[in-house]
Amino acid sequence: MALKAVHVSDVPCLDQVPENASLGLYSTRFSAGVDVGRSSFRIPKFLVIGHRGSGMNMLQSSDRRMKAIKENSILSFNTAAEFSVDFVEFDVQVTKDDIPVIFHDNFIFSEDNGVVYEKRVTELLLSDFLRYGPQREPGKVGKSMLRKTKDGRIVNWNVEADDCLCTLKEAFEKVEPSLGFNIELKFDDNIVYEQEYLTHVLQAMVEVVFQYAKDRPIIFSTFQPDAAQLVRKLQSSYPVFFLTNGGTEVYYDVRRNSLEEAVKLCLEGGLQGIVSQVKAVFRNPAAVTKIKESKLSLLTYGQLNNVAEAVYMQHLMGVEGVIVDLVKEITEAVSDLMKPSKEGDEESLPEGVGQMQVKSKPQFSQRELSFLLKLIPELIHS
């Protein structure tokens, strides 16, 4: 797709939300609601967010938990809802006939008579997309599904509990209604998108959210800088977070290459927060303070978030939530480590922990915490 500048100011606002739509991150899982206005946005508690539901599929992993349930599926979302997870994160793309569907990879692989072929998800009609994998109709067999791993191998997409591919509309209709949705607006890193295309597909996604979200908590997020600013222009009812590797990987678009650039983009576009690769935060802990001073919220993603100690360290640093694969383990760890403080106990809490009391936690002095924050970047770089 040809390069074309995106003039956000030229995009019409489509913010026509039903009266019962959620205007913040309020649900029965939270103690208080929030205002999504840029100047007052806040997250009321430390969030645990299920990555692609109850965890991503790593087919090359020896860890059975990474191959237990088909990622980005209704089954995976509702399994995550059985634990004290606040949101599920999932990836949304738009088919050729303008239907938002939930799928992570840009291409879907299959095999026919020994020949492997690939199709770009956004070039498929919905009916073609839904023909892959398990089928809804009893006795009907879908097309095989394979997946390309990071090392370039193509393997069978085998999991212990499989499920059908689904649309965004179906997720709203079939997933536990109190569970928040962190909707990642998915685009191909290798394509430079025209403004007209971005606006068109974002409208399709936003319209489904407006129609079906009701009181469900919603967060939009995306790695695509122009899409982040556009979806903020298209609606102002739900918070928009910019996803970034924070410099752990380098891209042609400099806006994607550091936490500093992420802050700049958020402030320019009126976004509410950043979702950073956790390694970027540990390598540059001072950035957390700058992000907070900019009145932006900060969430993280990455495999380190499957380690309870790393999650707790982020809580002490001021990170407001984590996207995790091991939903059961991390929600249990967070529940054990953090609970509302008892009345009268506030003065005994270590500085930086706020109104949270931690059970069976290491007790850090400010000097020790400062040392750890200096040590962590060296450990992450090594």
Rank of each mutant, 00 (worst) to 15 (best):
N284F: 02
Q357P: 02
K140V: 09
N113E: 15
V36S: 06
R256K: 15
P177R: 14
L59C: 07
K290Q: 15
R120W: 05
V319F: 03
I102F: 09
P377S: 10
L296W: 14
S297Y: 03
S382F: 01
R136M: 05
V209N: 01
F181Y: 12
V116K: 15
F109W: 14
S236Q: 05
F242T: 01
M145I: 13
D63I: 09
L126D: 00
R52K: 13
N284D: 02
M356K: 10
F220S: 10
S39M: 11
E249N: 07
V319Y: 09
I49K: 01
R136I: 11
I380L: 12
L146V: 03
Y312K: 11
C164V: 12
I219L: 14
E293N: 15
S76V: 13
L23C: 05
S76L: 12
V208T: 11
Y117E: 15
T289L: 11
F242E: 06
T300L: 14
Y251D: 07
Y252K: 11
F187C: 09
P350R: 05
I102H: 04
A227T: 11
V206E: 06
N78V: 12
V155Q: 08
F129C: 11
R42H: 15
I74C: 13
D253M: 11
K279M: 15
S39D: 10
K359Q: 06
S54E: 11
F187R: 13
Q363N: 09
I218S: 00
L14G: 04
V121A: 02
M356R: 08
A80I: 01
P217I: 02
S40I: 05
D86N: 11
V334M: 06
L126V: 03
K233L: 11
K140S: 10
M356Q: 03
L337D: 04
L326F: 14
D226R: 08
